[in-house]
Design a protein around this nucleic acid. Structure first.
Lengths: 138, 138
DNA sequence: TCAATAAATGCACTTCCGTTGCATCGTCTT
DNA sequence: AAGACGATGCAACGGAAGTGCATTTATTGA
């Protein structure tokens, strides 16, 4: 419990009750979470608060935003010490077409691509889609 | 001109005046086009018609949809003979953070990634972001 | 050629999600 | 305890995707 407060404080985020709850929620899910997911889980809380909490978490590098191609923004906790804005920390994401969940494959980094002269790469996003291990029955 | 009609007909799309215009518009742009772009270019036309035209084009493999991370769906013409639903035809896209344009890099295919057992890959999306050759001044 | 049929277009409206402005409440500091 | 700053709650906006239905346009077949 105290660990979460510590993590938040270290990243410059005041450990509010709400924020701790959201952090816990993110931590116990292994899939990426959308604003609507959190809204459903915390029915009593204000949409805006949740929205801004996620935004704050993202700014302070507690979570990273994931665009999985569904058109819905999702979030997942960053690994401790990971800076998702650095190319070497960019991992790929897998979106399951069956259960509709998106997971981080943090051990699979995005391969470096050599582009023609003139192109400067600053960021990359790689999403694979298909059937996840849970749904394929392995 | 007749070529466009031919291409549409071959793909099972009736060559309407509107559709030919949209096809031409897509052909002369080298960047991916959003619905709003087309709406602006064809101010007289109905949003719905444009929307449905793009959808038809996509179903009939005349264009492919691009998710460049901006949250706005974009479209670009498929190469002749290309089937963008096949893994070997999946190319990467580059989104310029400066001019906000997204282009196909058809010669750069998405590298194959080996996932852990249980994961079945059906589709992939790779978007690189940065500065494009036009904007970097090369 | 004309009627019957099917497809394409136009119009109105809805929904979903992200986002912002402002007022209020709580907490932290001095 | 007072003041300041940050967090939260409430209301509303805006963009973009999507749908239902009426109408127009094109195609087919008698």
């Amino acid at each position: 419990m105290k660990e979460i407060e510590k993590r938040l404080t270290e990243n410059g985020v005041r450990p509010t009750a709400m924020r701790i709850l959201i952090y816990k929620y993110l931590a116990e899910k292994d899939a990426a979470i959308s604003l609507t997911d959190i809204e459903t889980a915390f029915a009593k809380a204000e949409r805006t608060t949740l929205y801004r909490t996620l935004r704050t978490f993202e700014e302070k590098k507690i979570v990273h935003q994931i665009d999985d191609g569904t058109g819905i923004q999702k979030y997942a906790l960053c690994e401790p010490g990971c800076d998702c804005s650095l190319e070497q920390d960019l991992h790929l994401h897998f979106h399951c077409n069956n259960c509709d969940e998106t997971v981080c494959l943090t051990e699979h980094k995005i391969p470096h691509i050599n582009l023609p002269d003139g192109y400067v790469t600053e960021d990359a996003n790689l999403v694979l889609k298909g059937i996840c291990e849970k749904c394929s029955g392995q």
